[in-house]
């Protein structure tokens, strides 16, 4: 007699309700599954930094950190950097950058459009598809970031709704 046909002596701790389970559906469908908008941000672009660029950028970031301002979406640009901050701190950001004596431009009324998809990194081409769709609407994306389950795009709050609707129509439920 083979080992597999031997009666098993121990009582097993199989949960009763598990016996009743016939099928469980659990993986989220492939592709974009929802869109969300977060409002209340401003974007700042610091340009024309003088001297050694890396040191100059660190200098600007130090000034911002010392003022207790939390920033997101930092991007390094040719002669400076850009970032996003809460809109409520726009005035303070401007003051800090003025005091640092660096050329800058600051825009309020920004929003973040979050496009959610399960397991973004393994859906090859999906991030590019989202970006292509949004740029195709003519909307300018200030900044872009990604996480395991979402792409985050910073843009004018006036464009946010339109972009969200466009993504919902074009991509939600569509396979990558």
């Amino acid at each position: 007699m083979s080992a597999t046909s031997e009666p098993f002596q121990r009582s097993l701790s199989v949960p009763e309700e598990a016996i009743a389970v016939t099928e469980t559906e659990f993986e989220k469908p492939r592709g974009i599954n929802r869109v969300e908008i977060r409002r209340g941000y401003c974007t700042a672009h610091v340009t024309g930094l003088q001297g050694e660029i890396s040191e100059a950028r660190v200098g600007v970031l130090k000034t911002i950190a010392e003022a207790g301002i939390s920033i997101d979406f930092l991007k390094l640009t040719q002669g400076g950097l850009s970032f996003v901050a809460p809109e409520g701190m726009q005035e303070q950001v401007a003051q800090v950058l003025e005091s640092a004596k660096v050329p800058f431009d600051i825009k309020g009324g920004r929003c973040i459009v979050l496009t959610f998809a399960a397991n973004m990194r393994d859906e090859e081409g999906l991030i590019a598809r989202v970006v292509s769709e949004v740029i195709g609407t003519g909307v300018e994306i200030d900044h872009l970031g990604d996480m395991h389950d979402r792409v985050l795009m910073v843009m004018d709050a006036g464009d946010g709704e339109r972009v969200a609707r466009h993504i919902e129509q074009r991509l939600v439920g569509a396979e990558a």
């Binding site: 990194r121 081409g125 991030i127 598809r129 970006v131 292509s132 740029i135 003519g138 994306i141």
Partner: peptide, 27 residues
Amino acid sequence: RVEFAARVYETLAKHSINLHMINLSPD
């Protein structure tokens, strides 16, 4: 520029190219 950039990303999507550290600017 807008259409050009959109075409670039459309091509990347079509060829299933996975992107990191995307940086967008008008220039």
